[in-house]
Amino acid sequence: MATLKTPTLGSTRKRDVASRLCAALFGGYVAASTFSMLVARLVPLPKAGATTMAILTTPILYSATILWAFSARSPSRAWLVLIAVTLLAGGLTWGLIIVRGRP
C-alpha cells in the first residue's frame, strides 16, 4: 500500500472517489447482508438466536466493508474483493439452505 503514486486532482481522482463511494455504500451493503446471512446459518444457536446474532453483527460488517472500500489499493480491487465475498458467502448460504433446508 505504501508504493503508489499520489493521485492527482482532477477527473481521475473524482472517478476514483466516486467508484469507492459506490463500492462502500452499495457493494458494502450487499456484501455485508450476504455475509450476515452466512453468519446466521453458521452460529451454533437456535434459529431465532442465530438470526438476531447475525443482525447484531451487520453494523460491524457494514462499517468494515466501508473501511475496506476506502483503504484498498485501487477501486477495482475494492470492488473485486466485495464481489468475491458476496459470491462466496451467498453461495455457501444457498448451498446450506438447499442441503439442510429452512422452515
Binding site: Y29, A32, S33, T34, S36, M37, L38, V39, A40, R41, K47, A48, A50, T51, A54, I55, L56, T58, P59, I60, Y62, T93, L96, I97, R102, P103
Partner: peptide
C-alpha cells in the same frame, strides 16, 4: 452508536433472517 445503528438494522438491513426463515 453501535446500539443505535443495530436497532435500525432490524428495520433496514435484516436480511440475515432469510437464511433461517422463508
Amino acid at each position: 452508536t453501535y446500539s443505535g445503528v443495530a436497532i435500525l438494522m432490524f428495520f433496514l438491513m435484516p436480511w440475515a433472517m432469510f437464511a433461517n426463515y422463508s
